[in-house]
Design a protein around this nucleic acid. Sequence first.
DNA 1: TTTTATCGGTTCATATGTTGAACCATTGGT
DNA 2: ACCAATGGTTCAACATATGAACCGATAAAA
Lengths: 259, 259
Amino acid sequence: MSSAGKTLQLLSYFSTSKPEIGLSELCRLAKRDKATTHRHLQALEEAGFVEQNLETRQYRLGPAVLQLAQTREITVPRKASAQSVLKILADATGETTHASVLSGSTVFSLASCESTKHSTRVIIDLNQFPLHATASGLCALAFGPKNLTDAVAGNLETFTEHTITTQDALTRAIQTTRETGFGRTIRSFEEEVSSLAVPVFDSTGNFAGSASVACVATRFTSELEEKCQKHLIDASHALSKGWGGVVPDQLAAIWAQSL
Amino acid sequence: MSSAGKTLQLLSYFSTSKPEIGLSELCRLAKRDKATTHRHLQALEEAGFVEQNLETRQYRLGPAVLQLAQTREITVPRKASAQSVLKILADATGETTHASVLSGSTVFSLASCESTKHSTRVIIDLNQFPLHATASGLCALAFGPKNLTDAVAGNLETFTEHTITTQDALTRAIQTTRETGFGRTIRSFEEEVSSLAVPVFDSTGNFAGSASVACVATRFTSELEEKCQKHLIDASHALSKGWGGVVPDQLAAIWAQSL
DNA sequence: TTTTATCGGTTCATATGTTGAACCATTGGT
DNA sequence: ACCAATGGTTCAACATATGAACCGATAAAA
């Protein structure tokens, strides 16, 4: 990986649950040298991507990211239109909902919305979604560009005992996703979470991302699953419309049959 | 500059007015080699900071910046970033400084900082700022959303004998604020206080709040006013940056002229 | 008080990763 | 058919990133 790539990677360690990170800790997280990491952080700081809490000397994300996000959202407005759809989906299902976008061969988190119906909820605090272990990832593999399968090949990290770990099982899961129109994972990424996802399409007519419902696994009955499916179909249509695309007729027909 | 720094710099060429840039054009903008720039772009793409429009082959900002912005927004509240700026402003002017944010049609107090220079100080103990009677309020009216004027109409409470009480006088004050770039109130909210305020802008490019200096009225000479103006301009830039925005060029030009 | 173990940050010889002129392949206009 | 753009790639030369060892400070433990 290039020096620039390593530098950028440091940013991915910042999250809502870990907003400030010290030099030593970041070295451990990134498994890198202290001197190197420090230089990388300085480059990031100079560009405004991180800033230092002068009291604790810890680093946190800087203001530059806000400007870039603004430009991105104006250029490719997806988050804003996703938000309202996720809200509706969360209200209808009573579970946490989520939208992700595919960029290159990575599925990035875009936005999520928690339902207030239950006191136990799924909290999504994740930047990138493993293709083989999440419902959104399966949608990407099933409906996205073909070269995505290369990106997962021989890289099937095990998260739980239900995670897909063989190329063969993955191929079958992708096939099922294509046949049903739903990405479906049962406790495959986190032990307590079962998810259902649908693909979203943009103005090029291609797969652009996914909408998903992440259910507390013990609540995921067949009744709930059916309810999620019904509303996910609506969400896919709504999001695709918001992103300038439409759901392919073929897929719409598959969904229509399943209900 | 480090390789990582150069890579990060590329991101700064993307803007609302230039959301998509091709390789050659970016080379010209950054005055860099084509091979190098291409490698840098690949590093950025891998990390999701840019993505390629597959039709035009041009590059645009990627989804990763949205997540970082979200994390930053959640974890770095505006108050924290305002505090240090207010401290600097208070030290430079020797008077009490204050930051406020606009939410809906109300100007809320965000944070304040007292200077230790004088033993008589202005103590700001206020949750909401009357739009027509405070310097921060005038900034909101002058630079904020247009519907704010409705919120004050027919609601011009009198605080002192200098308070603006007629719609006509208010319109003139707002006009003056727009023309000078400074909200200015002399003993209009409290008998002993004169204030000067500047607008602050956020990542949406809109008015987000104000920074102000509240001076003990008897100390508010033209020399002090000039000093306050000078440092308020810096504060506006600093706060806007911390909140992910920038001061509009037009306003910056007005300030530049007045000095 | 000394010892130990953190922390953030810096130095410098080593060698690794970066650089850019020259190259190719496509596209679109004349 | 030609020219001038575009995006993208190659490889020798060399600039720049690297990391073990270091420093000073702080804080808890002996």
